[in-house]
């Protein structure tokens, strides 16, 4: 779901105005402070390119919205800027399989 005017200097991209997550356009580091459309975000851990952070405070049970599509449900409260992934989101359809941590 592309966006044709991405600039390399930008750190985050919200694919649609309705989204409550933003995409990292470059690697983000823990503690990094960013401003996204006037919302102050604090990144809680290293985030790789293409991964997601919360664009606003997300309460537990809320629907995660990316490109104006529901992509799962929050399993915990997520603060603005915090990493959004399998540790705090579950599928509304089928469980996500990840390898056990070595």
């Amino acid at each position: 779901m592309g966006n044709s005017d991405l600039a390399p200097s930008r750190a985050l991209l919200k694919l649609a105005p309705q989204d409550n997550v933003a995409i990292a356009l470059r690697p983000l580091h823990a503690g990094e402070r960013l401003d996204l459309d006037g919302v102050a975000l604090v990144v809680d851990r290293a985030v790789a390119i293409g991964h997601k952070v919360a664009a606003q405070a997300i309460p537990p049970g809320a629907t995660i919205v990316k490109y104006n599509c529901p992509i799962g449900l929050a399993t915990a409260a997520i603060a603005p800027g915090h990493y959004v992934h399998v540790h705090n989101v579950k599928s509304g359809y089928l469980p996500t399989y990840v390898l056990p941590t070595p």
Partner: peptide
């Protein structure tokens, strides 16, 4: 299992819906 490999999660995809959103494009 969904049609979802562990590498998809390592690559930042969280759920099958999110993978679908990309695949659908």
């Amino acid at each position: 299992y969904a049609s979802f490999a562990p590498g998809n999660a390592e690559g930042g995809l969280t759920t099958i819906e999110e993978k679908s959103l990309g695949a659908y494009a």
